[in-house]
Each structure stands twice: as structure tokens, then as C-alpha cells.
């Protein structure tokens, strides 16, 4: 088969796929089949190729998440600081969900991650784009309350 047959695909456009997926995830909250199809259409790619790329990376979501995504660090420093296990356990009890699950009111999704690159202020968690450091259970209560208060 001739080598030039993939020439119709625009390499510069394809290179945008990760950026486009991040934008789509921000807009739709997760990568639904519709979101994938839209990215594929804009970049002139096959939807299967976009999906293949997206599933290769761990930071893309394919199911709806709550309004706020809580990522608790389980990395070595947070673990040694005594936070990780206790924090995850506390959040599970408070929210009534396990890691990977979303509260029934659609407010919070709980996730565990490996490192949030803030070992000096462990234990840490990230909610959406905000990093929370040197956590205690009291602090967690306050943070959750504030987020609930926002509506």
C-alpha cells in the first residue's frame, strides 16, 4: 500500500487532541461520547482515535462526576505524615462514599491520587483546582462546609 495515503490527515490539527480533550472535559465535566465526537469532528479525526488517545491517559474521565472533585493524596509523604489513610477514611465516613464514587446529591466525587507535589505541607488534597495543605479533620470539615455553602 502506498505510503502517502495518510497525507489527507492534518498533523498539526491532530497534535491539538490532548488540549482539545482537556477543554472538552472542562466544558462538559467529563468526556461523554458526544464530547469525544465533537473533538473528533473539530480535529478531523476518527472518534475511535480520539477515544483511544483519551483512555491512554489517567486524567480524563468518562463518567459524570460531582460538582467538586476531591483528590486526596496517598503519596509517601502524606502517608508518613499520618494523613492519607485517616483523611480518606474520614472523608468516606463524612460523605458516605468510597473512592471513585459520587455523593447522591451530586456535590462531591472522592478520588485518591499518588502525589500532589506538595510534600512539605502534607497531608494534602486538591479540590477542583485548589490545593489544600497541612490538613486536619477540622480543616476538612470547614472546607466542605464552605463548598456546600456556596451551593
Amino acid at each position: 500500500m502506498e505510503a502517502g495515503k495518510f497525507a489527507v490527515q492534518d498533523p498539526a490539527k491532530r497534535a491539538m487532541v490532548l488540549t482539545a480533550l482537556f477543554i472538552a472535559q472542562e466544558q462538559f465535566g467529563y468526556l461523554s461520547p458526544q464530547a469525544i465526537a465533537r473533538v473528533a469532528e473539530r480535529l478531523n479525526m476518527a472518534p475511535e482515535d480520539v477515544y483511544e488517545t483519551a483512555t491512554f491517559y489517567s486524567m480524563f474521565r468518562f463518567k459524570p462526576v460531582g460538582r467538586h472533585v476531591i483528590q486526596v493524596c496517598e503519596g509517601l509523604s502524606c502517608h508518613l505524615a499520618g494523613g492519607a489513610e485517616r483523611l480518606v477514611e474520614y472523608l468516606q465516613r463524612t460523605l458516605g462514599i468510597g473512592p471513585g464514587e459520587t455523593t447522591l446529591d451530586g456535590m462531591f466525587t472522592l478520588q485518591t491520587v499518588q502525589c500532589l507535589a506538595s510534600c512539605g505541607t502534607s497531608p494534602t488534597m486538591r479540590i477542583d483546582d485548589t490545593l489544600y495543605e497541612s490538613l486536619t479533620t477540622d480543616k476538612v470539615d470547614m472546607i466542605l462546609q464552605a463548598l456546600r455553602g456556596e451551593g
Binding site: 476518527a46 477515544y51 491512554f56
Partner: peptide
């Protein structure tokens, strides 16, 4: 197509 990565990669149909 494919989904996932490494040892978890599998062949899939459509999405």
C-alpha cells in the same frame, strides 16, 4: 480501536 494503556490495553469497537 484501543482503550487504556499498557497491560490494560484492549481492543474495542466504536467508543
Amino acid at each position: 480501536g484501543l482503550k487504556n494503556r499498557g497491560a490494560n490495553t484492549i481492543i474495542i469497537a466504536d467508543l
